[in-house]
């Protein structure tokens, strides 16, 4: 799935992504579809399980040295909970792990999330290819930082 000049970047070690639903939310249909799609696209996929705290998500991301953390929430609490994850990453000076988001996120919340470094923020009906492309480009940034 990764093409062109980035191919060598992921040759030894494919993109490693952590899927997480921090906060109190059991809507996991989307996250499971994405897990399968990312795996089919050649990525190494981890899932943080149900109801992890933002701290647990960041700890797992660091311990597993992932390239991307993909956050999913469909309970309306993204502005509080996604922000907590982003704040923790910043407090710990982690700049080689990208944050992407998705779920039921109204358009008007997206600029604020982007300013926290959480990109994508895709809603229902987004083609998998669009999400995979976005994750790949964010993973490329992370991997280049890791190699620096």
């Amino acid at each position: 799935m990764v093409d062109g000049k980035n191919q060598s970047l992921f040759k030894e070690k494919p993109i490693k992504i952590l899927l997480a639903k921090p906060g109190i939310d059991g809507h996991d249909r989307g996250v499971f579809v994405l897990a399968k799609a990312f795996r089919d696209a050649g990525m190494e996929v981890l899932y943080a399980g149900l109801l992890p705290t933002p701290e647990e998500v960041v700890d797992t991301a660091v311990n597993e040295d992932v390239d991307v953390v993909a956050l999913s929430l469909l309970n309306g609490a993204h502005m509080t909970v996604f922000k907590k994850v982003a704040d923790l990453m910043r407090e710990r000076n982690i700049d080689d792990i990208a944050l992407v988001g998705g779920g039921t996120i109204p358009d008007e919340d997206k600029p604020a999330l982007e300013s926290m470094g959480i990109t994508g923020n895709y809603g229902p009906g987004t083609p998998l290819a669009v999400i995979i492309d976005h994750v790949t480009s964010r993973a490329t940034e992370s991997r280049l930082r890791k190699l620096r």
């Binding site: 906060g23 109190i24 309970n75 609490a77 509080t80």
Partner: peptide, 10 residues
């Protein structure tokens, strides 16, 4: 503390 931001939401 898990409930922060979720009270009365759903």
């Amino acid at each position: 503390k898990k409930a922060v931001g979720e009270i009365g939401k759903c």
